[in-house]
Design a protein around this nucleic acid. Sequence first.
DNA 1: GAACTTAGTGTCGTCAATACACGAACATGG
DNA 2: CCATGTTCGTGTATTGACGACACTAAGTTC
Lengths: 213, 213
Amino acid sequence: MAFTYAYPHPAVATDIAVFTLRRGALHVLLIERGGEPFLGAWALPGGFVQPEEDLDACARRELQEETGVESDVLLHFANFSAPCRDPRERVISVAYLALMPSDELRVEGSSDAAQAQWFPIGDLPPLAFDHEEILRQALANLGARARGVTLLFALLPPRFTLSQLQAAYEAVTGEEAEKRNFRKMVLGLGCVRETDDFAHGSHRPARLYEAAA
Amino acid sequence: MAFTYAYPHPAVATDIAVFTLRRGALHVLLIERGGEPFLGAWALPGGFVQPEEDLDACARRELQEETGVESDVLLHFANFSAPCRDPRERVISVAYLALMPSDELRVEGSSDAAQAQWFPIGDLPPLAFDHEEILRQALANLGARARGVTLLFALLPPRFTLSQLQAAYEAVTGEEAEKRNFRKMVLGLGCVRETDDFAHGSHRPARLYEAAA
DNA sequence: GAACTTAGTGTCGTCAATACACGAACATGG
DNA sequence: CCATGTTCGTGTATTGACGACACTAAGTTC
């Protein structure tokens, strides 16, 4: 066995708050725990870091394992390290937030998760561990970063209308935006490029945009 | 022994980039390592998390032990978790940045540190581990947060002149500010309160300000 | 083809940020 | 003590950004 430092080693896990939009409302993905502690309770997906991966890779792997999806956006936003946040032993949680377009949801259970399910923000069950606090901070962080707009692309399909983008903006920040000003801002930022195609289906078709190079 | 999760446990440490201003230039505190690995190399202060403390407390304690000072500002900004960043075993580093007024420096060595010393940014020795990368990110993060101005109070004595504040702003962000506009901005933010005292010593005395309630 | 619904646009007023120059107050040195 | 030098401290005019606001355009649906 290799040398190890003479200090106690805590367990280290990542927890991921995965957000998506469904019918215009922000939802978060929760799993029902399949083991102790908190058997049967809802929790954020996540798991322990493996020896050969860094924390980003751990979060990406756990997300893949527990939801079957890969997210372009996977952002670390805080650590949670209270000594007793897990009743069994010390676990330091490295918290990430992830975004995905609602199309790509393939919610599946796994060994650690009896089931996985989307919950609307604002109608959440009680959560295991300190996950309510983690989720609170994830939402605050997401809201702050959403002002840059580019983050929101990860909540939308590859091509989207400006109305969709605005709806995402409003759902995430909680603030209403004025249509003309919002469009001016987005186009002014230069972060979208217009395509020649239009979204049909309801009333007047809307031009489709995509993320700029 | 209590139950432990059946996953390998990495070592977890905090590393702290402590900044101060000396003669108008931003400096960072480095220690000369007193043990292997990287014996004799310069490194950021830091150390392993103890069972009964959370990460913030760990950073605060290490800062106290290795520099003898307590900082009001101690901010987590990133994790560093490449599996091989420490040659002996896996160590996940939780990186903090701290600020302190140049008055309060009591640089002392310790068991882990042969000596501690302030280095000007821009004239740094080679650093141990991945500490050069950590420091780079700390500087970028500090620069971004300094625009809020309130963070800068931690670099100054309790009462300071607006010229001092502006010098701190310029040293940290690297950008020059226009005197009248800078004062307008600071006073407009309402984050400082003027006192009835003045700083004497050179030429015309400058009014002293303090952090607003 | 009439009615409905969403898409898309331009202007004006207000406010914030920028650039810019000089008199005031004190220290220093002759 | 007076002249000089240095930093402190202020106001205005211009410009660009942001917010409010109402109507026409284009398809869909009935």
